[in-house]
């Protein structure tokens, strides 16, 4: 702390950032909470309906539950691709003698591309007519009978909209985990090897526990990012066909800006916020407890 600070100087420095943050983040959270108790289309007078929106959401809205299930599926696929892929590639990278920088740069490249560009790209990669990249490759390697329209089949569409999101950010998480792996002291691993530990044992008993704090942080970031996933499903399928790739975020967006039902959209927003906070708490509890055990 500065010895000569005045109360005024604290305010001068604190007020501008706090004001922007208040207007852009804090106030909207409270407004959402407030709006969630109303029936409002943005034009006619607001109608107070108490907890009706919440009752409808939990008991009377099948789409909400479909979207919730899809969101969980989306998160799981993203996490497997992002964290699993990141851990594998980062581990392999530590074994590599040369070319690490090139691999890092190339691997993170998709993170630089906008979601709209990615949506265009994957729309074309998945398409059947005209034959897209995946279907062309399937035919090329003689698996032509597996060809299909990945985005219009209800059984593949959720995975199809999740994969681009997983692909996009796996490089980012790889960088983080790679940096953590490099920090593992080599003496520890060498001692374990001398004691006859296999590569696998060294990995699970020494490396992984050592990077656990970073792993927890990365899991939290990846989960909250996946829970707010919106762009790619919205742009690729707009939740369709039917509701088979509808996420809570796309459902909220459509409720707000297509059906102009601001009240109910805010109710869904509030749920998404609670869900994110709950997810972060849960990850913390689960991964922390394992560390203590």
């Amino acid at each position: 702390m500065l010895p000569q600070r005045s109360r005024l100087s604290v305010l001068v420095f604190l007020i501008p950032p706090l004001a922007l943050y208040g207007i852009a983040v804090l106030l909207p959270i409270f407004q959402s909470l407030y709006l969630s108790f109303f029936d409002w289309d943005g034009i006619s007078p607001m109608l107070f309906v108490g907890i009706d929106n919440y009752v409808h959401m939990f008991t009377g809205d099948a789409v909400f539950w479909i979207a919730f299930r899809n969101t969980l599926g989306y998160v799981v696929i993203c996490l497997i691709l992002q964290l699993g892929g990141a851990l594998i590639v980062a581990s392999l990278l530590t074994l590599l003698r040369r070319g690490r920088e090139v691999v890092k740069t190339l691997y993170i490249l998709p993170a630089v591309i906008s979601t709209v560009a990615i949506a265009f790209l994957f729309q074309r990669i998945y398409s059947l007519d005209p034959e897209g990249l995946i279907n062309q490759v399937l035919e090329f390697v003689g698996l032509g009978h597996l060809q299909q329209a990945w985005l219009s089949d209800v059984s593949t569409v959720l995975a199809a909209v999740s994969v681009p999101e997983g692909w996009r950010f796996t490089g980012l998480y790889m960088l983080i985990i790679y940096a953590a792996l490099l920090a593992v002291p080599t003496e520890l691993e060498e001692a374990a090897k001398l004691d006859g530990a296999s590569w696998w044992q060294t990995f699970w008993r020494i490396r992984f526990p050592y990077i656990r704090p970073v792993w927890i942080t990365t899991t939290i970031i990846a989960t909250t990012n996946a829970l707010r996933g919106f762009d790619i499903p919205y742009l690729l399928t707009n939740g369709g066909p039917g509701q088979s790739s509808e996420l809570l975020t796309t459902y909220m967006y459509k409720t707000a800006f297509t059906s102009t039902n601001y009240g109910y959209a805010s109710t869904i927003s509030v749920f998404v916020v609670v869900e994110c906070l709950a997810a972060v708490g849960l990850i913390f509890l689960l991964l922390r407890r394992k560390a203590d055990a």
């Binding site: 909207p28 959402s32 909220m252």
Partner: peptide, 11 residues
């Protein structure tokens, strides 16, 4: 932690 979508309708 909070997803950005929460701000859309209020803003």
């Amino acid at each position: 932690i909070v997803p950005v979508q929460v701000a859309l309708v209020p803003l």
